[in-house]
Simulated scan of single mutants.
Amino acid sequence: MFPEFRELISHLKIQDDHFARLFNRHNDLDQQIKNMEAGIVPANGMAIEQLKKEKLQLKDSLYLILRKAADA
């Protein structure tokens, strides 16, 4: 995710607790979705769709933080 911000992501994960929480939640959701889609964890389409929406919102938030930090 966001390879152009790789160094900044590493820095923010250490320096910004809010960013780190969002980033970790995004990764957790990604893994949950993969497990559900693979049938490892039982789920219906609605549950997967809801997690994907939350993941997308987190990604948008992370991107905004990254853009602000890059412009600073």
Rank of each mutant, 00 (worst) to 15 (best):
A47E: 13
I14Q: 09
N35G: 10
I33E: 10
I40Y: 08
N27M: 12
M36G: 09
M46I: 14
L12V: 05
K13H: 05
K34P: 04
N44T: 03
D30T: 14
I48N: 09
Q32W: 13
N24V: 04
I48M: 04
A43E: 03
A47S: 12
A20I: 00
Q15S: 15
H18Y: 00
R21I: 01
M46V: 14
D28W: 04
H26G: 06
M46P: 06
H18I: 03
G39L: 12
N27W: 02
E37W: 12
L22V: 04
E37S: 11
G45K: 11
A43S: 13
N24W: 00
K34F: 06
R21G: 05
Q15R: 15
E37D: 12
A38G: 10
M46T: 15
F19P: 02
I14V: 15
D16G: 00
K34M: 14
N27S: 12
Q32S: 13
L29E: 10
K13T: 04
K34D: 13
L12A: 05
R21Y: 08
G39E: 11
I40Q: 13
I33A: 06
N27K: 12
I33R: 11
D16A: 01
V41L: 13
I48A: 05
K13F: 02
D17I: 11
R25Y: 02
R25N: 09
F23T: 03
